[in-house]
Write a protein that binds this DNA or RNA. Structure first.
Lengths: 356, 356
DNA sequence: GCGAACTGAGAAAACGCTTTCTGGTGCGGT
DNA sequence: ACCGCACCAGAAAGCGTTTTCTCAGTTCGC
């Protein structure tokens, strides 16, 4: 008590650079003008006498003054920051989206704040809310939460853009890859090569993109009754593929559609260890066309998704929302492009069905 | 003029939720208490009558009130956010660091803001400054800027931790991987296998970790005069390795130390296309032990770096700095672990030197 | 030569929160 | 019964900006 009082007496309202960091006030004092004028100069407001402006600029330079972004944010009501929530930062797909988003946003002077939900869907809601409050907008990447929950929180997250997920909440653009068409293209490719027994090594159950693939395969099966398609449980990483070898062999399939490139690579590796030849014995396909896919042995047949571009587009959509351009949130769909490489080849010996 | 005046008269200082978003004031009004009390309740201050606290909590819940982090940040002088600057977000190494950092920081309630300098060193200084001002601390990842510049800006960036780079500026912990020892281990492994002609496929010239590798190789050469080591220019990605095939073959080396796993994979892919066998004809090694390394064909011999852990440790160091624990910024060095897999084998035919 | 319009800069309010300061109430001690 | 102390909640002062408001000093027009 006494102490603090004594201190205050010794230091009567001087404060100056109390926080240690120099602020607008210091510049104002040094230049002999008011805070307001300094602010005007720093923001390029031309209603300031050029001579005074020069003096302020000199003072600012000398003190190496840089405006405090937090103060600015509070006054301006914007942070020049956007947030992105991803289910798993270790996943190359989300890394690529993040990269595209970050690059595009940076070009407009925005930074990105990341939030990794580690695939636990209950965290997503909280993370999204927190991130949104600190930012001017949010990108929700393949959220694992339920449709109902997504729809419920969407309004409070606006401006919001969704990647690989849709919602009926209004004003929320969605950027989705047409995984359904992609798997159909891949399956078609395998059938053309003579495969009649296919297997799909599925992804994370809660993943919407996995759902889209499953739906695509249903469509495919309906159109190709002669083809047998086995569904196998899986995941989204290497190890999933590696551990699925037994299940894959047990299925008797000769053409394997892996959930994504990672799973395909794990699977190929496992098959190789068993002494099986790809594509001699079994054809394997991936999805995404991650950079590595070109360089596996054999090079992986896959469906290329312009994933970095997706991140970039996400920023453009979000920017439009932030700027309140009444673009009615179009959203868009991306068609994967079949990329035939060396991991697929003619079926070895059709076992269950005889053609021609 | 007249308009605005009329407006003000009609709306005399009501404001309420001017920003559209509900604030502490709304809760205060609803609960019939002051802002201060709401703040106290929200922050778990127990000097509030339980009954009033309950009323406030009810009001907050009903209005779905969430404190505005920007206002909080300004008042508290902290943002609960840290920044990380990386030279290239596409590089798996930096992705892994980011992941480790993000995960560790999240556990302490901190978020991370990313800044990608795209390998242009002049951007780094600006990005670092901007990021730092928005955050409570900064991680500078393998900065490409000069030692002088780094030392100059380091004080203004404090709390700061460096990854794979050191500086003489005080109070800046450094987390470095001992790449020098790593390449020596790898080179030693190749020599044990009988290789006497090695080649090093270098990384980005400005990369400090590349410098450490070069230094390590110098040490190695001094200790193994019988071994010839060719230096080849390179980079840090797949394509670098893929395009280096000619240079590698021209060198006549039988053991190739690639800058990292990516380069090694690209190289193996290129060699495979030329019909060369790894490790039959040429042994190839990588560095980092990225997740993919286990799954290449042949599986890649490499030096494993606990890179995610590095990101994690970076957070712990930064946290200590933020909390002003006087830990005198120890920093630490990580030893890579040689991971022998299938991409290295006995030298085919020692050409220039004959042993025992 | 005087009022109106204009210019430019300072004063002050606002942004949304935390925290110190202040003051009223109720209690216990003497 | 009175003084003092502890308690608790409101008032207000920050935090570092931007921006509106205000007002003094000019300039212009008539």
């Amino acid at each position: 008590m006494l102490c603090s009082k004594a201190l205050n007496e010794g230091f009567p309202m001087v404060r100056k650079s109390a926080s240690g960091r120099i602020g607008i006030a210091d510049v104002a004092i040094k230049a002999g003008v008011s805070h307001a004028t300094v602010s005007r100069v720093m923001n390029g407001n031309f209603t300031v006498d050029p001579e005074i402006a020069a003096r302020v600029r000199a003072a600012a330079a000398e003190l190496k003054y840089q405006p405090n972004p937090v103060g600015r944010s509070l006054a301006l009501g914007k942070t020049d920051t956007i947030g992105i929530v991803v289910p798993d930062l270790a996943n190359p797909t989300f890394q690529a989206i993040l990269r595209g988003l970050s690059r595009a946003a940076a070009q407009d002077g925005y930074r990105v704040l990341i939030a990794d939900s580690f695939e636990v869907s209950s965290e997503e809601t909280i993370l999204a809310g927190e991130a949104r409050r600190r930012c001017d907008g949010l990108v929700l990447c393949a959220p694992r939460m339920s449709d109902a929950e997504l729809e419920e929180i969407a309004p409070s997250l606006h401006p919001l853009v969704l990647i690989n997920r849709t919602t009926s909440a209004p004003g929320v653009p969605s950027l989705v890859v047409d995984y359904g068409q992609g798997v159909q293209d891949i399956a078609g490719h395998l059938v053309e090569l003579g495969h009649t027994r296919l297997a799909f090594l599925a992804g994370p159950p809660r993943s919407a993109s996995n759902g889209m693939r499953l739906k695509g395969l249903e469509t495919f099966k309906a159109a190709h009754l002669e083809v047998e398609v086995t569904m196998l449980e899986g995941g989204s990483d290497f190890d999933t593929g590696h551990e699925a070898v037994d299940a894959v062999l047990a299925s008797g399939a000769t053409g394997i559609l892996a959930f994504n490139d990672l799973v395909a690579m794990g699977l190929m590796s496992g098959l190789h260890e068993r002494g099986l030849d790809v594509p001699g014995d079994i054809s394997v396909t991936g999805f995404d066309d991650i950079p590595f896919a070109k360089y596996t042995t054999p090079a992986l047949t896959t469906a290329a998704v312009p994933i970095t571009e997706l991140g970039e587009q996400a920023w453009h959509q979000l920017r439009a929302l932030i700027r309140k351009e009444g673009n009615e949130a179009p959203g868009s769909s991306y068609q994967p492009r079949l990329e035939v490489r060396a991991s697929t080849g003619p079926a070895k010996a059709p076992r269950s069905t005889v053609h021609g």
